[in-house]
Design a protein around this nucleic acid. Sequence first.
DNA 1: ACAAATTTAGACAGGCTTGTCTAATTCGTC
DNA 2: GACGAATTAGACAAGCCTGTCTAAATTTGT
Lengths: 229, 229
Amino acid sequence: MKLNVSPDIFPPRGHEAKRMSIVDAAASVFCRESFAGANIDMIAAEAGVSRQTIYNHHGDKEKLFIAIVRDLTERCNASIFATISTFPDQPKDLEADLIAFAVRMNHNCICNRDGKFLRKLIQTEGGRYPELFAEWREEGPGRTWPAIAARFARLAHAGFLDIDDPDVAARQFMALANAELQTTFMLGGTPTEDEVVQSATNGVRTFLRAFGKRQHVVRASKQGVLASA
Amino acid sequence: MKLNVSPDIFPPRGHEAKRMSIVDAAASVFCRESFAGANIDMIAAEAGVSRQTIYNHHGDKEKLFIAIVRDLTERCNASIFATISTFPDQPKDLEADLIAFAVRMNHNCICNRDGKFLRKLIQTEGGRYPELFAEWREEGPGRTWPAIAARFARLAHAGFLDIDDPDVAARQFMALANAELQTTFMLGGTPTEDEVVQSATNGVRTFLRAFGKRQHVVRASKQGVLASA
DNA sequence: ACAAATTTAGACAGGCTTGTCTAATTCGTC
DNA sequence: GACGAATTAGACAAGCCTGTCTAAATTTGT
């Protein structure tokens, strides 16, 4: 009798462990060397696995690459949705809460390993596998942007922001939060904690100068942001 | 006696023509295939030149690549400075003039051939030649950002904008103007004219909501977004 | 401890690429 | 038209990489 909880077809457990270490190593090597520059021996060495095992698991280099992108897309999406769920729906301090959200977004979805790798692979190999990356576009941006926009719409509806088009606002929010990190991202670098916070702070302040309720709130005297605490 | 005006060592003129077509083709192929995936025969074919000629001109694949990046950096810098010189110092219609400037920036420096190629090469191969791309960073962003910031500072000083930190404002301006084009850029695509104008328009409007001179003057009763129109 | 499945190291053919070389050809100039 | 420089096509060795194959060693479940 099997005590196997998951309905997977793969019998043992070391098998899955190998599979994961292959995927990890492959992502790293494909990012560092590009698809054409990567070779299976590097990946095998970095995964601590023999070359043949990689072929056993994934068939060939191209199938391996596709598996990596699908894997990264899935994991990144999970991170993004998890982070979106921490969006401040009822902020105590709107500025501070949005800054913290922007910083979380950076940490969990953009600057972390998966985020960096996926971004690099899309940029580098996007042209080579149109259908694969079209798939990413639908599953990724196609689903996450509306989710972020919905949160801003709710915040606006609750009276915290003055937004015409939530979709535009969502994209501008992220663009502003990362405005100072663009050059670093271009070169594949990772910004320091301070840089992330700095960029998020400046970005959110500008965002609130544009979309924050101004004197409307104070005008009626009591229904202010602080009142919700 | 030579009538050669330039002090170059290369005698004829067809020589230079070949050199240029090699550089063009190499940029295109390196971008499409990545450094490792590109091969000299492709470049030779696309340049309409024999393989040996490429070796005569550039020595080897790596030297050729470096020459391409230097060449693109130089040309892109020229475009950027030329475009910066069209910044609206004395705007008649601030919003319209800034939108037009943002659109020019996109056309001449980001969506054009050189801009797309240089960006792609930096993203793709940035990690492989740290010194080369450090050089780009100094010559490119290191010089262009301050130039843009200076223009915004002047505009603020002239009373058109309310800006604390011109460097931050410059980065945020560009980030906002391109906010809606990020996904397209990621995949190496070129946005349509409409998309560029749309993104620039939305970006500049938000920028002006944040930094435009507002109702300080009007505060007493007439303050509306519409008042700024 | 045993049997089945998996992994490993290594060898291997086939293909592709770089960079060199040579001999013939073309180009630009006088 | 003639000269010299540049270009061309093609062959070439050397190296690297993919993907397959084998036989041995290891792991896994019972």
